Simulated scan of single mutants.
Amino acid sequence: MDRPTLILSVMLMTLLTGIEKVSAQVVAQDAPSTFTISPGYRFTEKSGEALYNATCAGCHMPDGEGAQGAGHYPALADNPAVEAAPYVIVNVLHGRKGMPSFGDEMNDDQVAAVVNYTRTHFGNRFAGDVTPSQVRSLR
């Protein structure tokens, strides 16, 4: 390799190494500081809204309107099926069709909270709060 090519190669390697370091710093800076992975694969969120956003919104959408694409994710908004609290509890605990189960990742209080949130938001106004003991009985 002649001298100019060698110098150009060294300069290119130095430039690429510098870009790599800067990229790593930018990625670290842009990483959300509030993102946490729940210990033991259990959800740590407590409120129904936080649990909905962590578990349901990805498929059923933040507004509860559902989605279609790679799969069919039914709307929870204005959905009369959501009135039947045991139906919603069992779906959260054990899953349904393509929906995963969350019974192993949520305790009874968390399941009750997310079910109550779903039953009282998105145009749903169903009476009667779900209790942790109701969830426990359907596990």
Score class of each variant (00 low, 15 high):
Asp2Met: 05
Arg3Gly: 01
Thr5Cys: 03
Leu6Asp: 03
Leu6Ile: 02
Ile7Phe: 06
Ser9Phe: 15
Val10His: 05
Val10Cys: 13
Leu12Tyr: 02
Met13Ala: 11
Met13Ile: 11
Thr14Glu: 13
Ile19Leu: 15
Glu20Val: 09
Glu20Ser: 14
Lys21Ser: 11
Lys21Pro: 04
Val26Tyr: 14
Ala28Trp: 10
Ala28Cys: 04
Gln29Gly: 08
Asp30Ile: 13
Pro32Lys: 10
Thr34Gln: 09
Thr34Lys: 07
Thr34Leu: 15
Phe35Ile: 02
Thr36Val: 15
Ile37Tyr: 10
Phe43Lys: 13
Phe43Asn: 12
Ser47Met: 04
Gly48Asp: 01
Ala50Ser: 07
Ala50Met: 00
Tyr52Met: 03
Asn53Leu: 14
Thr55Ile: 11
Met61Arg: 10
Pro62Met: 11
Pro62Ser: 03
Asp63Lys: 08
Glu65Leu: 14
Gly66His: 06
Ala67Ile: 14
Gln68Gly: 12
Gly71Tyr: 07
His72Phe: 14
Tyr73Asn: 08
Pro74Ser: 09
Ala75Trp: 06
Leu76His: 10
Ala77Pro: 03
Asp78Asn: 15
Ala84Val: 14
Pro86His: 07
Pro86Arg: 04
Pro86Asn: 00
Leu93Ala: 01
Lys97Cys: 05
Gly98Pro: 15
Met99Ile: 02
Met99Ser: 04
Pro100Trp: 03
Pro100Glu: 01
Ser101Glu: 10
Phe102Lys: 04
Asp104Cys: 06
Met106Pro: 13
Asn107Ala: 05
Asp108Gly: 09
Asp108Ile: 00
Asp109Asn: 14
Val111Phe: 12
Ala112His: 10
Ala113Met: 06
Val114Trp: 08
Val115Trp: 09
Thr118Arg: 10
Arg119Met: 07
His121Leu: 01
His121Tyr: 15
Asn124Met: 03
Asp129Leu: 06
Val130Lys: 00
Ser133Thr: 08
Val135Pro: 02
Val135Asn: 13
Val135Met: 01
Leu138Val: 04
